[in-house]
Design a protein around this nucleic acid. Structure first.
Lengths: 343, 343
DNA sequence: GTGAAAGCGCTAACAC
DNA sequence: GTGTTAGCGCTTTCAC
């Protein structure tokens, strides 16, 4: 049964006034527009009786503001993006904005298609966790002046407001902690190559090695994306080709789970045989065997900052001066880090 | 800088035709409306040149269809709801529907307020994971005829299409597995009392006990919601008041993590000292110490079924005959189940 | 084959 | 104080 909604006209008719008066009264402009107490009440009564709710669609068309923003993530079921989504939903709602959630499946084509659809919905702004590579579409977005915030992964050569964790600092700290324990052969399970988050985390790893006079060895980095499978395969390969490794740095918590699977399969124990640190805290990190050391990203702050940056753009109608916003990370050392076996 | 969008009129002007012809051509009705090849091309060219994208807002108003659905969950960052959200986004997109994501924070007031806002946005349908309690609003929704699907938690006395896991069967299987190992003192860490998912899971637990001539003891059930904290406190209480317990059934994976924390604090090992089974599989379940036995819900099927039920309602404009759709669960036994210590 | 015009539901400028 | 009217951008009858 088609839920035919009540219109302003019906309310006006019932209250025996014109639509404009009804509109004014219901918009709370009774005082301002000097509407008599009596008429106002009549209108309010009528609206209540009919269960009137102004059509946001009509209002949007009229006001040329959709009251909606678009959120695009590579995988909405990933806990990191889910947490960002929640923050965005909560913060934008405060400004009367609805959030349209979309998912690019990690595909550049879908990303572009989806952004285009969001544009046709006339969203007032965009929060995007990009797939990773620069496409012509991004240049367009940069030029367009549309309010937009890039989150997590970003493009150094594209001038758009961005929120990202202190990735390099995080992996530097994690790697340094391993080195401090005596490790010198440290493998790295990487995420999607070419993404800024991956690049930056590798950079921190590399810098920590160099700072400690350990030669950086490219072949100790393996992996194709941030998934469990990638972590598993990367760990398997590394364990095979580089049995001398005494520690692993996983660039995502999924990668780390894959590594744990590979270690389990080989009856290797952590940290006795191999130390392990991973990016991204997770509720379970404390309870795996042994409790995992993590580089914790402050997802709430990331989501909140992104929302605020977007709302500011929508309100002022221009991009902020400061484009790159870095959110601190925190190294949490648990028992998965120990001295290397031969010490 | 205000991104002033190109309108159909501008395209029409450039192509030197009327807006109606432009509309027809761009809607792909050139054949149908016998528009000459030449005019059609001119219009397509003009649209391309101006980067025209029809305003979905205007189309919505005209067509009286917003092309959007509303999704309401108690916590968008919870992996279960995040996974449901993703499925909904993916499946509804196929029908040209956008998903507006909202979060009720587990508050009935916010739930009602949010549903009301979604209504004013003229969403074509609603997928709701309710907070848990029946409010007058639900009665209204039931009567209204609005396409809606209730997911996960539901109300036996409200006739709305519903998708939920075979909760009772799952906890029955889990409890039976514990009993088969010799356990007779089994504690239960519950979620939010009064919610259908919690009720059903407790029912299955109770039935398995009774079927095995074990007296059901209400005081062995503790907990206030599905969170880690609740699981922690419930486990602490149970361990204190009922030291004779040899196994725990956690009604959510967060509850189970809380239990693990309580056990760790007391230096109790699983399954040596206490066996543990939990609801909801999770990627980490295999890697905690020891690998956790789980009752796995098929979230993808839940999300897909909900989407399909909603789309069917939107298309046919009426509620399905079959209201309750149960999605099978699967018990996955891992090492966290062993015989009780005294055997 | 194409155009003119009405109207979706709302708001705001302008009348009186 | 309140009504009349135009118009947001689009689709679709109806006219020629």
């Amino acid at each position: 049964m088609a839920t035919s909604h009540t219109t302003l006209e019906q309310v006006a008719t019932l209250a025996e006034v014109s639509v404009s008066t009804a509109s004014r009264a219901l918009a709370g402009k009774a005082r301002e527009c000097r509407i008599s107490e009596k008429t106002e009440q009549a209108i309010l009564q009528a609206a209540k009786k009919l269960g009137f709710q102004a059509s946001h669609v009509a209002q949007s068309l009229r006001a040329q503001r959709s009251g909606a923003i678009g959120l695009l993530v590579p995988d909405a079921s990933n806990p990191f993006f889910a947490a960002v989504a929640r923050e965005v939903v909560i913060h934008t709602k405060r400004y009367g904005l609805s959030t349209i959630l979309t998912d690019s499946h990690g595909s550049e084509d879908l990303e572009e298609e989806t952004l285009s659809q969001l544009k046709s919905r006339r969203v007032e702004g965009l929060i995007v966790c990009p797939v990773g590579q620069v496409t012509p579409y991004w240049r367009e977005l940069e030029r367009s002046g549309t309010p937009v915030v890039v989150v997590d992964r970003w493009f150094p050569d594209i001038a758009l407001p961005t929120v990202a964790a202190e990735n390099a600092i995080g992996s530097h700290a994690a790697t340094s902690a391993l080195i401090a324990k005596g490790h010198r052969q440290i493998g790295c399970l990487q995420g999607r190559p070419g993404t800024s988050s991956n690049n930056e985390r590798i950079l921190g790893y590399k810098r920590a090695l160099t700072a400690n006079d350990i030669k950086f060895n490219k072949s100790l980095i393996r992996g194709s994306d941030f998934s469990e499978e990638s972590g598993f395969h990367a760990a398997c390969e590394l364990l095979k080709t580089h049995p001398e490794l005494t520690a692993l740095l996983a660039l995502s918590n999924q990668n780390a789970l894959g590594a744990l699977r590979a270690l389990n399969d080989r009856n290797l124990r952590t940290p006795t045989d191999l130390s392990l640190v991973m990016f991204d805290d997770a509720p379970f990190a404390e309870y795996v065997a042994p409790p995992l050391s993590v580089v914790r990203q402050d997802i709430l702050t990331i989501g909140r900052t992104a929302s605020e940056l977007l709302i500011e753009q929508i309100r002022t109608n221009r991009r902020p001066k400061q484009l790159l916003h870095r959110v601190p990370v925190q190294l949490e050392i648990r028992q998965s880090i120990g001295p290397p076996p031969h010490l």
